[in-house]
Design a protein around this nucleic acid. Structure first.
Lengths: 253, 253
DNA sequence: GAGTGGTCTAGACCACGGT
DNA sequence: CCGTGGTCTAGACCACTCG
């Protein structure tokens, strides 16, 4: 009996909300501006707070928003482009480096790392922690795994634990002839320790860049770097590392 | 009154759940196996379904699980490595290509694309849709923007709309001398059309690879490719594109 | 039609950051 | 202390897949 089938596609509320908010961000807000709190926003749109939050989560994932507990929700600046994989034939720590050595331990690596390094299961490797800062904000945390066999000249007690030892290991690495590197990027979620260093909550989305450094026909070092997915755009260039200032296409709806 | 402050760090339930489930996946389940449904799992762990879902969401984000409405939750296979940015100096569509041309339209591109192409705001460009399949599964959807000025020999009605015209445009592109390319990777969420092609729901997490093809001192073409973030690991190699069969380090907690 | 995951609600309490 | 976002609950209904 004339059951008018309008509203043909019942688009989810949160999806529609996201679109509306996204347009509002473009036209009515400027970077850094603080949004009304979640309870007010939910009331204003006539939805439950959970639904509103679902929309905000998506916008945060896309780098449009930044939310901080106890503070509020702010409009995020455009993602910062961080160069990865330039200086194709350079060891980590060489030349002027964007990374800062934080610490260095000697320990057995995770199983997957050991397999990639083709070291024994329980064989200890140098584990260098580094952090990367861009525009005053921490953007990445890295763990660099270096088998002792890659730096044979180094004695384990060469320097006191800490940044000094980390730098000593990296310095020693430069002596090898680097034959190439292979990188992979995938989505992950921040472990508790990385999250702390990145000023995010555990579980925050990150881009994990795994790089194998090849020398002497094998993997001489392995880097696992986790970048903040909300604030970073990873750039790979073969054109001399030209900085792209162009805003990438907004992928929102 | 001896308020024993055990449980020192009230780790969120869903986080702990994620860890437990993750270990269970490693030890008690095999790839493709189907998990109990969400209501049963929630009951078994004594949490609300929403909490259980929060844990599952994280695991899906990390590529450990695959959920499909009306079907169930299954254990996902390891992420497939897809090569990006190899054949550094090749145009899209050249040689044996992993991409398949789907369609080609002539339309005004999004503002951000127009800016990157340095074309006029309303200037129409060829917009080629391509899709990429790996191991029988769709892994990426791409939009290739090519200004008419990059393929001057082509007449707009050279071929009927559809794959044939798409291939004609790509063929024409080969005539230019490619000077380099710049790529960037960032996290995004799938638009409705891309989601459909990738067999996912709108909003699903994707890795967006934006590539500028440089010729004649300017951007001759722009590719925006969206890869399924749950199933893909993007590989960048300067060592001849050696396939890495090694499982990357699991970033789960 | 039965069973699955996806959406949505209206509450509650907690952890954190500033005042 | 108050206000913020983060977590959690116990329901309900919807959209989809498949037998």
């Amino acid at each position: 009996m004339g059951t008018t089938q309008l509203e043909t596609v019942p688009e989810p509320k949160y999806w529609h909300l996201k679109t509306v908010l996204s347009e509002a961000l473009d036209s009515e807000f400027s970077v850094g501006e603080i949004l009304p709190n979640e309870r007010d926003l939910a009331a204003r749109f006539g939805v439950a707070r959970a639904t509103l939050r679902q929309a905000l989560e998506q916008l945060e994932l896309e780098g449009r928003l930044q939310r901080r507990r106890g503070v509020g929700t702010t409009v995020a600046p455009p993602r910062v482009g961080v160069a990865v994989g330039t200086e194709q034939h350079a060891w980590p720590g060489g030349g002027e480096d964007v990374w800062q050595a934080v610490d260095c331990a000697v320990a057995a690596p995770p199983a997957a790392v050991a397999a990639s390094l083709e070291t024994g299961r329980e064989e200890a490797v140098y584990t260098v922690r580094r952090s990367r800062v861009s525009h005053g904000q921490p953007v990445a945390a890295e763990l660099l795994y270096i088998p002792a066999s890659s730096v044979p000249e180094l004695s384990a007690i060469d320097a006191p634990s800490g940044p000094a030892r980390a730098r000593a290991v990296l310095r020693e690495l430069q002596r090898l002839e680097l034959e190439g590197r292979e990188s992979a990027v995938e989505l992950g979620s921040a472990r508790a320790d990385d999250a702390k260093e990145l000023d995010r909550l555990p579980g925050a989305p990150v881009l994990v860049v795994t790089t194998r450094f090849l020398a002497g026909g094998r993997t001489a070092a392995l880097s696992v770097a986790t970048y903040r997915a909300d604030t970073c755009r990873l750039t790979f260039g073969d054109s001399g590392g030209v900085e792209i200032h162009q805003d990438p296409e907004r992928r929102a709806s």
